[in-house]
Computed example of a mutant assay.
Amino acid sequence: MPQSLSRLALRPLALAAFLTLGACSPMSSNAQTTPFVATDGTLLNVSAQGEARRVPDIARMSTGVVTRATDANAAMRANAEQMAKVVAAIKAAGIAEKDVQTSGINLNPTYQYRDNQPPTITGYEANNTVSITVRDVTKLGKILDTLAAVGANQINGPSFDVDKKDEALDEARQKAIASAQARAEMYAKTLGMKVRRIVSISEGGGFSPPMPMARGMMAMKAEADTSVSPGENTLSVNLDVVFELGR
């Protein structure tokens, strides 16, 4: 075979090998670049956010017991006895075992400080804390009062959340798409063009901003539950949408 014909025969093979290797090349799943699109139009990248509001239906908080004694063993024993009452009250309130998790057990010496002398150990402090999830926020005030009554001397929270977020996030997505579409139509009209199609959509994370502590949560009332106000959570979705504009 003549050399010139041999080169022509090899070119399709080389091209096929190049395309095969290109198809197999790994790409980072985090890469979010505008895709190459063969078009005679203009590509427009629009960032849009959609939001959905929901009343929280779960609350997360932590509670526990701090005890002090002159020796470490006594501090831990006293803590275990008091914490057993707290855990029993949590279960009696109808909170499932899966929603109760030990978040910290600590034993630390307590010191006395004097001028020009090294600190001396005067006793020990034991601390046991559990994190709990309350799935009926209407009972939260009563649960808080019960925990305090059985000896819990540490209560932190609550933070409110939405248990099942899919429906709310889909609502936020729809609003984000509508916002991006309206913005693309505005740009196209301004430029004397039309929106031909959506080339790509890239979604950022949906999130629920943390809620502040409920107003008056620890304001004890005579013969009444602690006041708890769950308020409202906002869930949002961020989208990057690439449109193709044309005449």
Rank of each mutant, 00 (worst) to 15 (best):
V55N: 11
S202Q: 15
V100R: 04
T39W: 05
A78W: 07
L15V: 15
I155W: 04
A184N: 08
A180M: 07
L140G: 01
I90V: 10
E171I: 06
A126F: 06
E185K: 15
F18G: 08
S25M: 10
L15E: 03
E167V: 12
I198Q: 07
R54L: 12
G104Q: 06
E125W: 02
G157W: 08
V87K: 08
A182I: 07
T70Q: 15
K164N: 13
E232Q: 12
E51W: 06
A31S: 15
L44Y: 02
L144F: 12
I58S: 02
Q101N: 12
P230W: 00
S227I: 14
K98H: 11
I121V: 14
R196Y: 09
M217R: 07
G104T: 03
A9C: 12
M217L: 14
L147C: 08
E97Q: 08
V134W: 00
A219C: 11
T42I: 05
V87P: 00
D40V: 15
P210E: 06
V137N: 04
V87H: 07
K175T: 09
L10V: 02
P158T: 10
N238E: 15
P158F: 00
T120A: 05
V228Y: 07
Y113Q: 13
P212V: 06
T20V: 12
N153L: 02
L43C: 09
A96R: 15
T39K: 05
K91A: 06
R68T: 15
A180F: 00
G104W: 04
P209A: 08
L144Y: 13
T226H: 14
D136P: 01
A9Y: 14
I95L: 07
N79H: 02
K221A: 13
A89R: 08
S47N: 12
F18P: 05
